[in-house]
């Protein structure tokens, strides 16, 4: 398993790099990441733990895989103050999330949504919900099902009744 480009995970608990405190995050599948506190506190959840002095040992990030956590950390790095020289460059970098091109993209966005929700990262949550909304816009119900690989669990009669109630949404 890839260890991503994380730090030496030899020590647990808070370490410092220069004067910057490092936090240790552990993904659901056991990958360990060391992240600067100033960066990780973009997560409201982690910030709360730091403020409450609960971030002194390894922080388990349940429900988020190492792969997703690596993406989240990349997001934090880009959004650290001073990391990108100007707003335009940041927007350009963010634009890779704007569109969902295929099912692999789609499921990455799902993982990121769950992570952003769990860790409470408003910027990432906004970006991902926007990407999903863009993908949904203008699609019919059947197209949405196909796009998200969701099987209808309504029986035919139920679905007919639902469509009839809002005929306008299904006729044109």
């Amino acid at each position: 398993m890839s260890t991503a480009a994380t730090a030496d995970a030899s020590s647990s608990g808070d370490t410092t790099e220069g004067s910057v405190r490092l936090l240790t995050l552990q993904s659901e599948d056991g990958e360990v990441f060391e992240v600067k506190e100033t960066i990780a506190t973009q997560s409201v959840t982690i910030k709360g733990m730091v403020d409450d002095d609960c971030a002194t040992s390894t922080i388990p990030v349940c429900n988020v895989t190492g792969r997703t956590l690596a993406m989240v950390i990349e997001w934090w790095n880009k959004h650290e103050i001073g990391a990108v020289s100007n707003e335009k460059e940041l927007k350009e970098w963010e634009s890779q999330f704007d569109t969902i091109d295929d099912k692999s993209d789609r499921d990455d966005v799902y993982d990121l949504l769950m992570a952003a929700n769990y860790l409470n990262i408003p910027t990432l949550l906004d970006c991902c919900t926007s990407a999903v909304a863009e993908a949904i816009k203008g699609k019919s119900t059947d197209e949405m099902r196909e796009f998200f690989d969701i099987k209808s669990d309504f029986d035919e009669k139920e679905e007919d009744a639902l469509r009839k109630e809002n005929q306008w949404a299904f006729e044109n």
């Binding site: 816009k137 949405m144 099902r145 969701i150 679905e159 306008w168 949404a169």
Partner: peptide, 10 residues
């Protein structure tokens, strides 16, 4: 319109 269509997915 999108919300109504979405509500019938599952």
């Amino acid at each position: 319109l999108d919300c109504v269509r979405l509500s019938v997915v599952c």
